[in-house]
Amino acid sequence: PRPDVDFLPPGTHLLFAQSGRIEHVPLEGHDMKKAGARTVLHLPEKVIIGVAYDCVEKMIYWTEITSPSISKASTQGGEPTAVIDSDLNSPEGIAIDHLGRTMFWTDSVKDNIEVASLDGSQRRVIIDSDLVNPRAIITDPPNGNLYWADWNRDAPKIETSHMDGSNRRVLVKDDLGLPNGLTYDSQSSLLCWADAGTHKVECMSPSRGDRSKVVEGIQYPFGMTSLGKNIYYTDWRRDAVVAVDRYSGKESDEFQPQKRTKLYGIATAYAVCPSGQNYCAVN
């Protein structure tokens, strides 16, 4: 098999970073088809942290920390291309607004959140205060909201703002440890996080503020994504992707790649974009 870039077959997949590669696991319904797992992208000298997927152009975006940069590659084959390669220090989480055609990322050394068009132009800092260890970031494109988590050991928190950085608010600050992973499910309007300090997955409704526990006693979550009833997180102790049913709170499956080393960011590559439009898409 071609070791640097491979085609992503049709269908919905999980994409996750493991050291210098991005792997995919096909999803059949909500089940991982583990036998179909392959390397999509092999960049042996890099350390890939964050992964995001643009369902419109079917491109994978990722952050990389050895020569700090944000790059993209087509899932239909094609060379990796740097999109942002200057003035980054430790880019970690990355999220895409597929409607507005923008991307957002956190930098854990610059302690800020930036936005740019998907080609890297129109780059701008939108949050640059009160961040210590920002990592996970996700978008809710139909509603124009942004969510991120800061695992600052002295005062961990989960925050939200509009996509221009306005209307910033702290959503969660109590009983958090190391909230490494975040995901938002637009059908249930629930924001969920995976915490390597409290060893729990919890969810809340950002509008109502009610909070509920999905599962506890998990080991060391890093990245997180979701699809329908399932939540998927990467785990640093198990070197695996773990699937949890958000309604039963039960672990339903695990995928452990042959190579035993830490797994970082994870994203869902949708076969078809979720429906909806937002202000930025029409203006």
């Binding site: 071609r2 070791p3 640097d4 210098g20 390397t39 092999h42 042996p44 190579k259 035993r260 080393t261």
Partner: peptide
């Protein structure tokens, strides 16, 4: 495996704890 076009050989399954084109990292 051989990377097409550039014909470069890359190790694809380095021993635990190592990575890189030749498992040198």
């Amino acid at each position: 495996a051989v990377v097409p076009k550039v014909r470069e050989v890359v190790c694809t399954n380095c021993p635990a704890g190592t990575t890189g084109k030749r498992c040198e990292l």
